[in-house]
Nucleic acid binder design. Sequence first.
RNA 1: GGGUUGUUAGCUCAGUUGGCCAGAGCACCUCGUUUACACCGAGGGGGUCAGGGGUUCAAAUCCCUUACAACCCACCA
Length: 932
Amino acid sequence: MKFASAYEPGEYESDIYAAWEAEKAFQPKTTKSRAKNARKAAENASEEHINPVDHTYSIVMPPPNANGNLHIGHGLTIALEDSLIRYHRLLQDETWYIPGADHAGFETWVVYERSLEKTGHTRFEYTRDELYKNVWDFVAEQRGNMELQLRALGASCAWDDLTFTLDDKVVKRVYETFEKMWQDGLIYRGEKLVNYCPKHQTAFADIEVEHKDEKGFLWDIAYPLAHGEEEIIVSTTRPETLFGDSAVAVNPNDARYADLVGQTVKLPLSGREIPIVADEHADPTYGTGAVKITPAHDYDDFEVGNRHDLERIRVIDDQGKMQNVPEKYLGLTTEECRKQVLKDLKDQGLLRDEKRILHSVAHCYKCDTVIEPTLKEQWFIDVETLAKAAIRHLKKGEIKFYPENKGKVLINYLEGLKDWNISRQIPWGIPIPMFRKDPENTDKNLPEWIFDTHVENQTLEKDGVTYYRDEDTFDTWFSSSHWPIVCTNWAEGEESPFYPLNVMETGADILFAWVARMIMMGIYVTGSVPFKEVYLHGLVLDSHGQKMSKSKGNVLNPLELVEKYGSDAFRLGILRGRSAGLNQAFSEDSVKTGRNLCNKLWNISRFVQELIDTNNEAGEGKPFFADILPANEKMYIPDDPDGFARRAVPPAVQRMTFSRETGAAKKVFTSPAQPNVSTNSMGEDWICREITSAREDLMAEMQGYRFAEAVETLHSLIWDKYADWFLESQKMYKNLPLLKRTLEDILKLLHPFAPFVTEAIWQNLSWTDGMLIDQSWPTPLEYDPISAENFDRLREVVSEVRRTYQDIPGNKKYPLLFGDDSLVDDNQVLVQKLTGAPSVSPSDGTPKGIRIALANRELYLDVDEKTVKEYSDALDERILAVGRELNALNARMMNPNYVDKAPKHLVKETEDAIKEKESLIDRLKKERDLIQ
RNA sequence: GGGUUGUUAGCUCAGUUGGCCAGAGCACCUCGUUUACACCGAGGGGGUCAGGGGUUCAAAUCCCUUACAACCCACCA
């Protein structure tokens, strides 16, 4: 006996993964990076072993943070993507699942800066280049963890092709695009308001800012007119910025202020004179209807400033301190300055009102500091042409979205997209390859900026002029928008069989930040959309539908669940009850269900193997998998200085006796080497039908990304059908070749979702060869449909007998007698086995005991009269129930419209059902009369 | 203000173009240990598919409407 009585995932998973990896089972045969190997393989291999590449199937992994640990969302991502990949691998597609690691610019930077602070240092003690080097080392120390975790989840990705977001090929591609955009005039340097975090001292894209509703105040401040006694009262939530005011705006239709437009006011506490302008921006119904305009520190005011050509005065510096203000306020923080200004205004009698209000305030998504809209020179992409092209392709339906509505949502977003700020003031990222002319040099004929990729230099000499490198780095989304292009090694003018990707799978929360940008960039760089389909998953919530968060303490760690229940259990669990785009709950219970299914399958296999062993020619077989691979020999020790070197093949794996050769010459099983099977009994025809139809259902479900349904289909096939009925029937009639074949098919069908247990079983079975991961998707099984249907009837009989046993008072089983009933007559042994009846035998022709409540069946339980009487209540209930069903059916037939208009086959079904119910009720009544 | 989603059994969710007595897993109740599995087997209870209206022979499914819940975008001086 090779199978333990319960499946222990911990004993198999890491060894199995190591074996797959050692066999290069995850690498596609032909990718550009492996073209040389493939050519060599083609030379060495005999032709029939090389399967021509008909279909390619590629997915790029959304790169997890190289510096972090995987969370539950990654767990879901891997479960989804790896199932797709493994499914297509079984279909013999040329699959390429490309793994990645993200430098996660800002995220990593924050972690690094925090660790730096702990040592008592700050970033300002180092040059940009030093900092970059330091973070690189910092990340190198950490990374590797993430890759181990991907392996634990079973991700069958092409490790040879792992791409890090700071790899040379990424940087090269990003620079090419940037240069192209620069030449196309899509890049501009602009002084614009940016979302600036004073703590991190960097700007953010709009999308990275979190708006929160907060309690605050609305103050009314009197601005005296420059000439005369009058004053105008403005409403503001930010009195400290009044030093930066360039105007006061009122609505052009606001009669109250009509005669003031064109006059000037004296700014309190400063005395500077500013105009009163008419602008639609001022809402007459809000506050006093007059609003101060601070173009350098407010988005709307910036626009107003443009319309009226107003001065932009920055009064808050990069550190969040006051500047360009009267001596008294200089150097104060915005908060201190606000207090002081309010006090001084109050003292001067200019503070007229203070109202509590609720308003939304922008916060840094990382440190929660209030975002200061700040005037800064930054690099921007003019997104209009990019967005328009993207919309055009989307409207043509070139990308199919799951869920479907996200396509519309995306178009909606692109239509209102504002220019994209791609500068970040953090050293950890890809340097912007632009150099600025020496400010001392005033030669107007020279360009202000020049493009050059020699960013390793801080300065550049050209024609005797010195240029200084821009110190900023790219927004990470700018580089990651190239992900499908870079990972698939797309190149201008060359064939790229793996681009566009078949599907982009990622979180619905980054539809705008990432998916939108990949689409724009893909079209801009390659001329075609970067993927054919997009599957977006929602958030994984806790069991009560609450967002997981550290503060709530409801975070589930995927790796802990893998450790506890196994990788397969986790994957099955997280896919259960989940559909595209929705935020849905998840709990440990669903993982347990997955674990139970794995164990069920394990025991099914154990049982099948037992049947084979005890009924077959004994002896032959191959060594037990667990004997070859000692469980204590773990793989993947990060052993390399740069964190990304390949792991050595463990000796245990080298000892394995698999038939296939290691390397690129992947042996492909083009014609399934499955035994010819034939069916000898109803149950066998039935299971062949069920497997075949489940196979078809699965294919449709995978096509439509209905993962949860696929899992359910498999659960029901394995548990309710294969184990509960087929195996039970095989305890009576054994068909060894069919047992083998059907078990193999089931292993293949489940393999995409539960790769480890299925492979572990495959390795433990005595007759299988090679590795399951390399097998091909099962072909349909042949069966006699009539015979399969007869088994359905037999199942009805068995179920009804079991139900009747349950209903009879006392826990006793009674002999089953059959009259003129060939189905039961022909299958007496099986019926006895399945019902647990003490005996099954022909009746003497006269009804006695309890009749089994099935139409067209002459079956009795040989029950003594006393018990029959006790049972009569249940019988009455049964008669009533059938009567109700009959009434409903009759009512339908009484409706002439139904008979006329409904499809004929439905009407016929109803008629048949009525006949059956009538006959049943007739029999039941007779039986009741007999009892009474 | 604009957009999106959800409301189906105690819980978490399926239900593909309208059509067999509305399904699954978990939980619950009863019974059980027979050639694998108690991470088990057999049987069972439980839903007027959020409310209202409409279209249809037929609606959880299509249309309108109300309520509740969640999310995204924009704005909030």
